[in-house]
Structure formats: structure tokens, C-alpha cells
């Protein structure tokens, strides 16, 4: 049953759509805000999967885009520009520009060097944000309220915001699915499998990889914009290298190169973190080895594991 490629994502989004209903019976705010966060990071993880899973571009600085999107929203708001459209356009434009410049340089390198240079750019963004005295520096920046939709405070309602984020997640998912299946997506995946072969048939991988990097960066920036809206707070911590690492772990944990795997990974990561930290403050001691075990023994991540057990059942 799980072999049907469309079933898992549909199931996944249906479950997410049902979360606010569960909130009717238990502590409302907590569950809603946890899952809103899951979905926002899932958007970022999907964008990373687009370049990591389909382009083999291991970006270790992807959290920078989250930060840039968040700061774009926060800085505009601090200057009184609280409109949704202005914030969104600014977040997308800023992250696109950063992706274009850093991608143009990073993509000249391969393998480990690509990882290191994206990490370096990520750290540059981090320290730049931390040095922005006017916008809170290390301490971050508090945003007065969520973005206004044509002047209304619609998004202040957590349920409305939840469904807006869910719609965004589904939109991003469908967009990436479309890109992956397009002509462009084929070239991107071809360059991942065998760049030499691609050159021999007449494709230079570079412009395709750069375009993918910019698209992924913009989606990352979009996630940052949503995150700033959810928390009404912006901080350099959004773009720490640990956060970039977590995004990679989410993608691998869920199942790389499938897009919805990134959603599962983001959910698994954040829920595990939440659950374990409820037991003990030293939860990372448990979480770390768990991640190692998952990577070691669940090849293909959670999705790969599901496919194997359903495959075993169906013979």
C-alpha cells in the first residue's frame, strides 16, 4: 500500500490538516505552535532536499536563508512596513540575491570544498546578523506583530496562521515536485548522477545548479519569513551552523531525494527533540546516538524503512 508514491504525501498533509482538531481536546496552543514550527522547518528541509537530494549539492549553510528571510521580515517591520506582501517580497529578494552571489562562487567548487564554502558563507551571514546593533545584535529583534494581510491582523489567530503555513507547505511541495519532473529537473538530476556524461551530451551543469540553488535559497528565505511571523522574534541563532546541520539531518532522516521525506524528517526530528527533552535536560546524550543509529541502520531514512516493511508484507 505504501508503495503508491502519492499516498504518503497525501496522508502526511491530511494528518497535518487534522492537528488543530486534536487541539480541541488537549492544550491547544502548545500543539499548534509545535506543529506550525514542524511545517515551517519542513519547508526549509524540502528546499534543501531539492538541491541535496536531486542535485547532490551538500549545502552546509542552508540555515542562512532562513535567517535572511526572517531578518528581512523583522527589519522591515521595525521600520513600520508590516504588510505581508512587502515582507514576503523582501524576504524572497534578499535570499535570492544571497543565493545568487554565494552560489555563483560555491558552485565553482566540488565535494568537500563545496560543503566548506557554503558553511563559510553561512557563518558570514550569522556573524553579520549578530553584529547588526540597530536590530538587536546578538540578542535578536522582537517583532511587534505578525504581517498584516491588507491591513488586517488575520494571521494573529494561531489557527489561521497554522493553515496558512500548511497551505504554504503544500504549495512548496507541489512546486518542487513540478520542478523535479520538469526538463530542468532532469538536467539537475543528470548532473548529480554523472556530470561528465551531461557535458558530453551538451549540458553545462553549472547554470542549472545555480538556478536550483537560488530556488532553494528563496524557499529557505520563505521559511524564515514564516518563522519570524510565528515567533514574532528574529535572532542570529536561526542561521547558526548547527541549524544548517539539523536541516541536513532532517532530510537524511526522512529519506533523501523524495521531497516528502524531508517533511517526515522535519517532523521526526522536532518531535523526538520535544519528547526527549521532556524526560531529561541531557536529552542530547540520547538524541545524538539515536541519530547515528538511524543513519546507520535505516538506509533511505524513515521512508526507506517504510518501503522495506511494506515490501516485506506484500512479499
Amino acid at each position: 500500500m505504501l508503495r503508491s508514491p502519492r499516498l504518503i504525501p497525501i496522508l502526511l498533509f491530511a494528518l497535518l490538516a487534522a492537528v488543530p482538531l486534536a487541539g480541541l481536546f488537549i492544550r491547544d496552543g502548545y500543539l499548534l505552535s509545535l506543529f506550525t514550527r514542524v511545517m515551517i522547518l519542513a519547508i526549509a528541509a524540502i528546499s534543501l532536499d531539492l538541491i541535496l537530494g536531486f542535485g547532490a549539492l551538500v549545502s552546509f549553510g542552508h540555515a542562512a536563508f532562513i535567517g535572511i528571510g526572517a531578518y528581512a521580515m523583522g527589519i522591515l517591520a521595525s521600520h513600520g512596513q508590516e504588510g505581508l506582501l512587502a515582507g514576503l517580497v523582501m524576504a524572497l529578494a534578499a535570499s535570492a540575491l544571497f543565493a545568487l552571489i554565494t552560489g555563483a562562487i560555491s558552485l565553482r567548487t566540488k565535494g568537500v570544498y563545496f560543503i566548506m564554502i557554503t558553511l563559510a558563507f553561512g557563518q558570514m551571514a550569522f556573524y553579520t546578523a549578530a553584529s547588526l546593533r540597530a536590530y538587536g545584535g546578538d540578542d535578536g529583534l522582537t517583532v511587534a506583530r505578525r504581517s498584516l494581510v491588507f491591513g488586517s491582523r488575520l494571521l494573529e489567530n494561531d489557527r489561521v496562521f497554522y493553515y496558512a503555513v500548511l497551505a504554504s507547505l503544500i504549495g512548496v511541495y507541489l512546486l518542487c515536485r513540478m520542478i523535479v519532473g520538469s526538463r530542468f529537473g532532469r538536467v539537475l538530476q543528470g548532473a548529480k548522477q554523472n556530470p561528465q556524461r551531461m557535458q558530453a551530451i551538451g549540458f553545462n551543469p553549472y547554470p542549472y545548479q545555480l538556478a536550483a540553488y537560488v530556488i532553494a535559497g528563496m524557499i529557505g528565505g520563505f521559511a524564515g519569513f514564516l518563522l519570524a511571523n510565528q515567533t514574532e522574534f528574529v535572532s542570529p541563532a536561526y542561521m547558526s551552523w548547527q541549524r544548517s546541520g539539523e536541516l541536513i539531518v532532517m532530510v537524511i532522516m526522512g529519506g533523501i531525494g523524495s521531497l516528502h521525506g524531508a517533511v517526515i524528517g522535519a517532523a521526526a526530528f522536532l518531535l523526538l527533540e520535544e519528547w526527549l527533552s521532556g524526560f531529561t535536560e541531557h536529552w542530547k546524550v540520547i538524541f545524538g546516538p539515536m541519530l547515528v543509529l538511524i543513519v546507520l541502520f535505516m538506509r533511505g531514512g524513515i521512508l526507506g524503512f517504510l518501503a522495506r516493511i511494506s515490501g516485506a508484507k506484500n512479499g
Binding site: 538536467v187 554523472n194 547554470p207 542549472y208
Partner: peptide, 25 residues
């Protein structure tokens, strides 16, 4: 390209000389 089918391998070579590959949809 090992992950692509035989047909996809060849189709990509056809694609290289028939129109732009900057088509996202």
C-alpha cells in the same frame, strides 16, 4: 545516468538539442 531509465537517458540527449532546458513546469 544509472538512476534514469534507458529511455530517460536518451530523452535527455534529445532534450539537449531541442529547445530550452530552463523549463521548470
Amino acid at each position: 545516468l544509472p538512476a534514469f531509465t534507458a529511455l530517460e537517458n536518451v530523452a535527455l540527449a534529445v532534450q539537449a538539442r531541442s529547445g530550452s532546458s530552463f523549463r521548470f513546469f
